[in-house]
Amino acid sequence: MTGHKPRAHRRRRAQVGAAAAAVAALLLSACGSDGDGGASAAGGGGTNFVTSTNGIATVAKGERRAAPRLQGETLDGGQLDTGDYKGDVVVLNVWGSWCAPCRAEAKNFVKVADETKDQGVRFVGINTRDTSTQPALAFEKEEGIEYPSLYDPTGRLLLRFEKGTLNPQAIPTTLVIDRDGKIAARAMQPLSEEKLREMLDPVLAEK
């Protein structure tokens, strides 16, 4: 009888690993896309989001779905819980140090994060597909990123987002979460400062 539990445990681990690998492979394949290709279709199948010609998908305030609560260790060894940020607007950016489009947009995130930090805006990264924290920490230092990033090498945190919502499906992906903890906007492409503001400012202006 003692042999059954280890086998069952290995099966569970294999299933979780396979699911995480599938998500990570999807995200990895999206990195390097050069614009709106991954985000050009309007939501369908009962979803409530609409994607504009600039590749930014948005949801009307009364039709948004709650973002999952994300908890875990940050790249610098601290702990982060997005549940602590309710009442703030959260900009959530999925990135990897190996991803050239992530590097291209990083300076824009640093600038907007600095400009909005006193307006109730929290920037949070989700670092994924980096097999150790060292290259990710080097990326942050080089780009001057001071806001925290959850370390999610296998994409497990990304599995918490419901399919059919504005869930992350590419690297980079950026989500804007409103003060009620609901997903208001998504972009699955590297963002200029202007496009990031297009996503953030309308949510920030909501009362």
Rank of each mutant, 00 (worst) to 15 (best):
K86S: 12
A21S: 13
T131Q: 14
D81N: 15
V16N: 08
R10A: 15
A106F: 10
V203T: 05
Q119A: 13
V176I: 07
K61H: 06
L27P: 05
M1H: 12
M1V: 12
N54L: 01
G125T: 03
V203M: 04
D114G: 14
N54I: 00
Q15F: 04
P172S: 01
A67D: 03
P68K: 10
T174H: 00
P6K: 11
R10H: 11
F123Y: 05
K141T: 14
T58S: 06
L137G: 01
D76F: 07
S52C: 03
I183P: 06
T74V: 12
A66F: 09
L191K: 07
T165Y: 02
K107R: 13
L26Y: 03
G83C: 06
V16T: 12
A136N: 10
E193A: 15
R13H: 11
L158R: 04
E140N: 14
R12L: 14
A106L: 12
G43N: 10
D88T: 09
Q79M: 13
A25E: 14
E115N: 14
V91W: 01
V59H: 08
Q79K: 13
E194G: 07
T154H: 09
R129C: 05
T128K: 04
L137M: 11
S149H: 15
Q79P: 06
T174N: 03
G35N: 09
G125H: 00
K86M: 07
W95H: 05
V59N: 05
T53G: 08
K141R: 14
L150E: 07
G72Q: 07
R64W: 09
G46T: 13
Q15H: 11
K163V: 07
G32I: 04
S149R: 08
R160T: 09
K86R: 15
G38A: 00
V94S: 00
G43D: 09
W98V: 07
P101S: 04
G72E: 08
H9E: 15
G120K: 08
E146G: 15
T116A: 05
R10C: 01
Y85S: 03
A22P: 06
E115Q: 15
A25Y: 03
V16M: 10
T174I: 09
T128S: 11
R7A: 15
G38H: 08
S192V: 08
G120N: 08
P68R: 10
I183C: 11
V112C: 09
R160K: 15
L92N: 03
